[in-house]
């Protein structure tokens, strides 16, 4: 009986040592407040300017290291018959939508990783294989990945894709804002560079936001007064301007609060500095000790 109590104190001490606990607490703390970094880069998409040439799809495949088919094959407009989603080998896709203002000229929208300010995938990943860089990109480290695909589940924009057909070395595939290319080689993402219409503008997110609102003010007849990605799901590095409501070009409505804020709050409430579990441990130990009947020992004795 006394042994039990001694053991108990020892254990509490052991758990208290918890260098792990400190580490956990520190890491959890660091990720609590997420506002866009001032240096974060992003891309502004001027949807009305897109002509659906799909050059970006080609450039993306090339930059991602896949061997894309000849560039001429990307002129095939029949792929627009149905809305497409990113695939393991095409991290960005262009989709066509009817233009209510001008039947003859449909609108095109580009889908790829939004590089959220507070990414759900990063919060979801249990081995830190996904991380948000200070300069904007959400990048993936395959060497850590277990292939659990929680990031696919978590992404509100349904962007990451997975090599389901690979038995040994499957990967999560998504746009990484060309972060893998050395800045000297590629000073802007491949899709931004190739875009003939310059639909895409690469720059600091803060400046892009300014620019976006400026465009809305100067051309209120062209743009609807909404920058998609400014607040959606906590904000994203990719910002979109459109002439038609965003729900007509394949975008969904999201709360302004980033989804990880709630889950991380709950998670940290459960494990703040490892104290709640220790507290439970103590409480249960106390209960065990207090309810212990005077006669007999435990069954194991």
């Amino acid at each position: 009986m006394s042994l039990n109590r001694r053991e108990f104190i020892k254990a509490a001490g052991l758990a208290g040592i918890g260098g792990s606990a400190c580490l956990l607490g520190e890491r959890a703390q660091a990720s609590e407040a997420r506002s866009p970094s001032p240096d974060a880069m992003g891309v502004l998409v001027d949807i009305p300017k897109c002509i659906g040439c799909r050059r970006c799809e080609y450039a993306c495949q090339e930059a991602a290291g896949f061997d894309p088919p000849p560039i001429e094959t990307f002129e095939d407009k029949s792929v627009f018959e149905q809305a497409r989603r990113p695939q393991p080998r095409s991290h960005t896709v262009i989709n066509r939508y009817a233009n209510p203002q001008d039947q003859a000229n449909p609108v095109y929208n580009k889908f790829n990783c939004m590089h959220c300010v507070d990414p759900a995938c990063v919060s979801a990943c249990l081995v830190s294989a996904l991380s948000k860089q200070e300069d904007g990109p959400v990048v993936y480290d395959v060497s850590r990945c277990m292939g659990c695909r929680y990031c696919l589940v978590a992404c509100p924009f349904e962007i990451p894709t997975y090599d389901y057909d690979m038995p040994l070395k499957p990967q999560v595939r998504k746009c990484n804002l060309c972060a893998h290319l050395v800045p000297e080689v590629q000073d802007v993402p491949a899709c931004v560079k190739i875009c003939p219409q310059e639909v895409l503008t690469y720059g600091k997110r803060s400046e892009l936001l300014e620019l976006a609102h400026e465009k809305i003010v100067t051309a209120p007849d062209v743009y609807i007064d909404h920058v998609y990605g400014e607040h959606e799901a906590g904000g994203a590095s990719w910002l979109y301007l459109s002439s038609v409501p965003f729900d007509q070009v394949g975008f969904k409505h999201f709360d302004h609060k980033a989804p990880p804020r709630l889950t991380e709050k709950i998670q940290h409430a459960e494990f703040k500095y490892f104290l709640p579990p220790l507290m439970w441990f103590g409480l249960l130990g106390a209960a065990m000790w207090l309810t212990k009947p005077e006669s007999g020992g435990t069954s194991h004795e």
Binding site: A124, L126, A129, Y150, I266, H268
Partner: peptide, 8 residues
Amino acid sequence: MWSPNSAL
């Protein structure tokens, strides 16, 4: 590789 923000 710990990722304490993740429920998983």
